[in-house]
Simulated scan of single mutants.
Amino acid sequence: MERAPIHGIEVFLTIVREGSMRAAAEVLGVGAPAVSLQMKALEDRLGVDLLFRTTRSIEMTDAGRVLFEAAAPAYRDMVHAVRKSQESAKSTTGTLRLSLSRGAYITAVAPVLAKFRAENPVITLDISWNEELVDIVREGFHAGIRLGDILAPDMIAVRATGPVPSVFFASPDYLKEQGTPKHPRDLLKHHCIRYRQPTSRAIREWWVTEKGQETRIDPPSRLVFDTVVGVIQAARDGHGVGWSMRTTMEEHLRTGELKTVLEPYARPLPPFYIYYPEQNKRVECLRLFVDCLRQQHRQKKAQR
């Protein structure tokens, strides 16, 4: 399919609308000779004369009238569409679509949600909870929020939290029956409940900190879930020891359904980041949300 000479048509329409090449040149911000050359290039490409040129005026030929009557409305619609697109990107209204895990919501989003909604009451947040790392561009999301070690590549990433505290946990009944582990090596003798990352299908490694050194441990497990909720529920049911971020556990720890173990050894998880493609950085509602996350992170960092 032959590409339409959009720029040349814009020059032609401007000449007709303004009544002269000199006036068109002022509107287009170029010199009159450049307008004349662009007009000639358009006529040469189309193989027809579009304008009668005299020393006093410019008139359209029959071919010029056909082009003007067809192109002028289409050009106005195109200009209107461009303006609407620009206004949409700059608008503080509309819908912001986010993909994130339950842990990301509890840790990064929940602390800023009330403030963001109060400051931006006409922005709708459309949030999809998903443990799986989805293709946010293909699925139509503006941004995603994930731990820093599982971010999608080729994205702008902005830190939303500090390192995320983690905990080892088990139910009181399990600990009463099996005993409480005192050292990470004791986990090799316990029933451990592991988490499989849905996207990579890899079982998440367990890490501990001892005397300033980080060590990976790989306790055997006969119970694996691809959701953190599954790991927590199995631990509540007394099936073994789990490991997860503390923010997802607070309610169960407060009620006593679960107890922490090995607290001095639990290594923090990586920070959460909000990430998005380059083309979304000018979306105003996303910029406002990113700024809100940044401000929250700075405030928490200053309080430490």
Rank of each mutant, 00 (worst) to 15 (best):
S88D: 07
G94T: 06
Y105L: 13
V66L: 13
A143E: 03
N130K: 14
E69F: 05
G140F: 01
E132P: 08
H142A: 05
S128Q: 13
S88Q: 13
R97V: 12
G140V: 05
V112I: 12
A70W: 03
A81T: 09
A89K: 05
T124Y: 14
F68P: 07
V122N: 10
L100C: 01
V122P: 01
H142P: 04
F116Y: 06
A72S: 10
I136A: 07
A72H: 05
L125H: 05
A118N: 04
E139D: 14
A108F: 08
A70D: 03
L67E: 02
V109H: 03
W129V: 09
I127R: 00
R138S: 14
K115M: 12
H142M: 02
L113Y: 15
L67P: 02
T107N: 03
Q86S: 13
S99F: 08
E119Y: 03
T124Q: 13
K90E: 11
A81G: 07
S101Q: 00
R83K: 10
K115Y: 09
L98T: 04
G94K: 00
A114L: 11
R83N: 11
S85C: 08
T92A: 15
N120M: 10
D126W: 12
K84V: 10
P73S: 11
A74S: 09
S101P: 00
A81N: 09
E131F: 08
K115G: 09
A74I: 09
E119P: 01
R117E: 12
V66D: 14
S99Q: 05
A71H: 00
T95D: 08
K90I: 09
V134G: 01
R83Q: 12
D135E: 09
F141V: 10
L125Q: 06
A70E: 01
T124N: 15
V109D: 00
P73F: 12
W129Q: 08
S101A: 04
Q86M: 12
S85R: 11
A71M: 07
L100F: 00
